[in-house]
């Protein structure tokens, strides 16, 4: 298998390390590579879009002309800004901000306020109980009928997935900083 990590900006090395750890835990033979150029996406079994600034990710993908190639990747996992990139709709973005519009979810960008409102806390998820880090996090404000909720924090959806011909996984927090479980789930779905 081959998993790409979109490597322009943000938590790239964190995702590479945790994905490699997840492949070891699952004993899956899998290459994990940073990707950012045209032609690097067609043979990927899955792509992970890290957190960072969604406005920057959008601009760099557009300047590189890789939007359409990314859209063709069968399985995609986005954390924080990566989840914004996956979403059909985004609020509080820039007027010209584009997303991949792949996953039937709506997000509000930077929905908790300035950095002093960023937080960490334990959360219950369908994949177990974890410590979760929220950094200038978005909120998942609407989900389509094919979206399965994996975790909530109070009333807010913080992780969800779309299973169909393609598999999409989105979290508003940063699992790559505290757990391998979401990466393990993604790898298993890519393997199916």
């Amino acid at each position: 298998m081959k998993i790409g990590i979109l490597a322009f900006q943000g938590g790239v090395i964190e995702h590479i390390n945790v994905t490699k750890k997840a492949t070891q835990i699952l004993s899956i033979n899998c290459k994990v590579i940073p990707v950012k150029y045209k032609g690097q996406f067609s043979d990927l079994d899955g792509l992970i879009i890290p957190g960072g600034e969604s406005t920057v990710l959008h601009k760099l993908c557009e300047r590189e002309g890789i939007f359409d190639e990314i859209k063709k990747v069968k399985n995609i996992f986005g954390t924080c800004a990566g989840a914004i990139m996956l979403a059909k709709n985004v609020n509080q973005g820039l007027p010209d901000q584009k997303t991949l519009e792949l996953m039937d979810i709506e997000l509000a960008r930077n929905a908790y306020g300035p950095q002093t409102e960023s937080f960490e806390q334990d959360v219950e998820t369908k994949l177990g109980k974890f410590h979760a880090i929220f950094i200038r996090a978005p909120k998942i404000t609407k989900i389509g009928k094919n979206i399965e909720v994996l975790a909530k924090n109070n009333k807010e959806i913080i992780a969800c997935e779309e299973i169909g011909d393609r598999y999409y996984l989105a979290t508003s927090f940063h699992p790559e900083l505290t757990t391998t479980k979401f990466h393990e789930r993604f790898l298993l779905k890519c393997k199916d």
């Binding site: 490597a7 322009f8 900006q9 943000g10 938590g11 790239v12 090395i13 964190e14 957190g51 960072g52 600034e53 920057v56 924080c80 800004a81 950095q115 002093t116 409102e117 960023s118 937080f119 960490e120 806390q121 880090i133 929220f134 950094i135 200038r136 940063h174 900083l177």
Partner: peptide, 18 residues
């Protein structure tokens, strides 16, 4: 918990490559 070192250094981690 807000304002922890993890949350503070976490934002810097998300600025990398920028």
């Amino acid at each position: 918990e807000k304002g922890t070192f993890t949350v503070k250094s976490g934002l810097a981690q998300m600025l990398k490559g920028g």
